[in-house]
Design a protein around this nucleic acid. Structure first.
Lengths: 419, 419
DNA sequence: CGCAATAGTTCAGCCATACAACAAACAGCC
DNA sequence: GGCTGTTTGTTGTATGGCTGAACTATTGCG
């Protein structure tokens, strides 16, 4: 890190540190617009009638609810909501007569099929494009199976770009606006420059993937696949901070704090796959020895279970349920190693919820015992927190959902651009 | 972590997520006041005449400089600066005639001896109270040597409270306002509740240290000692994000991102002392085996070097420089272990600058080689970043400085309360 | 059917900023 | 030494966005 004299160079896609610029009246409106949008998209339910036992799913808030929850006056909320409605970010449902007296409220919900976010991905065995609207509905989903190990990045990314362009064209023809796209890649991505440094399982290195996509009018940002998959969990019922660990050929992690990805300096973090489990252990492809991947990586796991390297997690699960000794021993070994590496992660990052994704998702019942044991032994704060280990909720190709959601999160976080 | 239905409970001392409340005109003023204060306290130097090669130390900015740097008009900056001056946060220096034409500018600097922050600390071998003013000057410094291993927390904390109260009384008699205090403790502190869960080296556990201080009118917050020491580094020339690792009886780390402490969920992070170095290694007091502390903890290090457990770092340094084989072998062993644990930290957190503090500070020349070697082997992003390993700059009892600085940082971040 | 209650809208007042004009203080220049 | 040009800091006036209170709209209840 050379001591460059750059003055806090702003990162491209990150939320601008918004205390850093002058605030004028215009800023006031932007901020309150954001506040109102946030309240519609994830209601805190502070203003509703029943303050006791909040229901599992909060009903859509009305203008009055938003006013009560935010502290703004009903007058201000009205004008802001009107803007959001005209801008197509928020929709009004037909007023439904409540049980109590008074004029019935107009429920406000995220608008469907107006603004959408795109998640796109190149992985070892598929290309994918997925679009989500603000209501969270999947409005496009294209997957091309294939084998992209040692492929030509220019060819593959151009092909993915074509898929994406077709999806964009179709959605725009239906009247939707595409806010942007997130490209998920299984490798080390510099979030500041958008460059892919290396993706071992694709055999790619040192290239600018956004340029190769050939999507000119669409703002595209790149991120690591496991990190975007972590964000997909936010659609479900997770705490605001958690660690997401995705098992695949490699093992990667996403650190989510207060519903936002923690990226370190350049997005090069969460590399749990090469955490030390045992320096006397097997050599790893990274050059070191005893890395987590040598115990809990997908291929290592399958091989240790006596299955071919291209077997599916389902095959492994079948072997486990069939009582296969080698398979169970492999899971035991992987579970202890995973517990050890996760303990380091929890001790260092200080987040106590761990979500296991990727191939681990279905294996959680077989991993839990060992992982929890080791966590209990090695996590220093274990006596004071409830360590929570759970399986990922998001389905297949979670990075696509996570990427699309991330685009939409930025739309909601800065609605002024869209109204 | 029980799924409590609390609605984003705000943490006491943390900067409130300020997009979460309604913005009125008053908010506008607060935010611009903060912006102006920040510009006076750490000038970005965007508005000065010479945009070429920024000098090592930026000269104090004038109102016009602040206007240029922030984008506010000179009129607005003037009123805001006047408020800060009247509030005693900012002082005007006598106008100095610049070399160029035009009315000479009034340099604006942090005010001296007006508002101060307190750092207070209980550690194994001393109690301390230190006060810093906004200009960074030490305006009080009280240290009581002692042995507080297995001490009575009520007695010791009351005694520290008395020291602090005396300092506060003296400073207030001199016309200064004490903005608050940070209590540094060598243990696991819950930053949400302010409770100390456990401090092994003091033999303390499960108590509320702030209540025991008996400082009624002073807002006091508690934090881990190593983390506050990390903040002390910000006084020097460090990058905005770095990892601070403090070697003592235990080994702790502070993660600083964009000049702010990263605290995870409850401040229980950076526990690098119990990262796995070798599961076949020596048993650790934490119950596990092969933790970093068993290789690079202060007492282990001294014993391995053939010195008594109460020897000083200076003794160790003398042995090293005298060519003592056991000492050098101990440092080699510690360096490799530290490198391994640091590699995990860097891989997981994604910050590439590491500052070594505590007893490591003076040992850096003897540790560097091994640490850098192992980091190069194990850090995945090593080919793409310059890993920067350096010795801590802050002097003795850095946590006191860090605590005081943290209090003042909050004053500058929210000057509206003080004008 | 009238009253209380709740939702949403309209309009005057206020506050902090922008913009523009001005006063203050200097260097340089003939 | 006085004039000009330049930069700093301070006065006004205008404007945008929010508040607060009054107002309309729509329901339940007796």
């Amino acid at each position: 890190m050379s001591a460059e004299a750059t003055t806090t160079q702003r990162e491209p896609g990150r939320a601008a540190p918004d205390g850093a610029r002058a605030s004028r009246q215009h800023t006031l409106r932007e901020r309150n617009l954001r506040l109102v949008a946030r309240e519609v998209f994830s209601p805190s339910g502070a203003g509703t009638t029943a303050p006791e036992a909040a229901p599992a799913v909060t009903p859509p808030p009305s203008r009055a609810d938003v006013a009560a929850a935010t502290g703004l006056t009903r007058a201000t909320v009205s004008t802001l909501v009107d803007r959001l409605v005209r801008g197509g970010l928020v929709a009004e449902l037909p007023p439904v007569a409540a049980q109590r007296a008074g004029r019935p409220a107009v429920p406000l919900v995220p608008a469907a099929r107006t603004v959408v976010g795109l998640g796109i991905e190149v992985n070892v065995d598929y290309l994918g494009v997925r679009a989500l609207d603000l209501a969270g509905e999947r409005v496009a989903d294209v997957v091309e199976q294939g084998t992209f190990h040692d492929s030509d990045p220019a060819v593959v990314l151009a092909r993915l770009g074509e898929h994406a362009a077709r999806v964009v064209a179709r959605l725009e023809a239906e009247g939707m606006r595409v806010a942007g796209a997130r490209l998920a890649l299984p490798g080390l991505v510099d979030t500041r420059t958008g460059e892919l440094e290396v993706a071992p399982n694709l055999g790619w290195s040192a290239l600018d993937p956004v340029a190769l996509l050939g999507l000119d009018d669409l703002p595209v940002e790149v991120a690591n696949e496991a990190k975007l998959a972590a964000l997909a969990e936010l659609a479900g019922d997770v705490p605001p901070s958690f660690l997401y660990v995705s098992g695949d050929v490699g093992v990667g992690a996403g650190i989510v704090v207060e519903r936002q990805l923690f990226l370190g300096e350049r997005g090069w973090n969460g590399e749990i796959g090469h955490v030390v489990v045992d320096p006397a252990g097997p050599r790893c492809s990274c050059g070191a020895a005893g890395c987590l991947e040598q115990y809990a990586g997908k291929e290592v796991l399958l091989r240790a279970a006596g299955l071919p390297a291209d077997a599916s997690p389902g095959d492994l699960l079948a072997a486990l349920e069939g009582g296969d000794g080698a398979a169970r021993e492999a899971l035991h070994r992987a579970g202890r190693a995973l517990g050890s590496a996760l303990a380091d992660l929890v001790n260092l990052v200080g987040v106590s919820t761990v979500v296991l994704g990727g191939v681990y998702t279905e294996l959680v019942p077989w991993l839990r015992g060992d992982v929890v044991d080791v966590l209990g032994e090695r996590v220093l704060a274990a006596p004071f927190v409830d360590l929570d280990l759970r399986a990922a909720r998001a389905g297949e190709r979670a990075a696509l959902d996570g990427g699309a959601r991330e685009v939409l999160r930025e739309v909601v976080a800065d609605p002024a651009v869209w109204v």
